[in-house]
């Protein structure tokens, strides 16, 4: 067994690092194999991976429409714009 493979079997720090790298970018074929071997034997990191993907979904899915400006702020903003226009 290569030392890289041996290292990762028990190394959750490295495994979670590779999980993040795979989700947000890409990892090499060797790293994919290492991660595969680790996850096959580590239920804790499997939970981590599920939750990590879930966090991204929730983060991105927080729709723009959930946020509304209050009317008072809009009124002030309109007045500021009118003032700017009248300057010219």
């Amino acid at each position: 067994m290569t030392s890289a493979l041996k290292n990762i079997i028990y190394n959750c720090r490295q495994a979670t690092f590779l999980i993040e790298k795979r989700i947000a970018g890409k990892i090499t074929a060797a790293e994919t194999l290492q991660l595969h071997v680790h996850l096959a034997g580590c239920s804790v990191c499997k939970i981590y991976q599920q939750q990590s993907i879930l966090i991204n979904k929730v983060f991105v899915g927080f729709g723009n429409a959930d946020f509304k400006l209050d009317e008072a702020f809009k009124k002030t903003l309109t007045e500021k714009i009118e003032k700017e226009i009248n300057k010219n």
């Binding site: 927080f62 729709g63 723009n64 809009k74 309109t78 714009i81």
Partner: peptide
């Protein structure tokens, strides 16, 4: 037409920024 900007786009832009 800047007069209508707030009415038309303020909530959208705010949502974009908040997210």
């Amino acid at each position: 037409d800047p007069i209508s900007w707030v009415e038309k786009y303020a909530d959208y832009l705010y949502g974009f920024a908040m997210s």
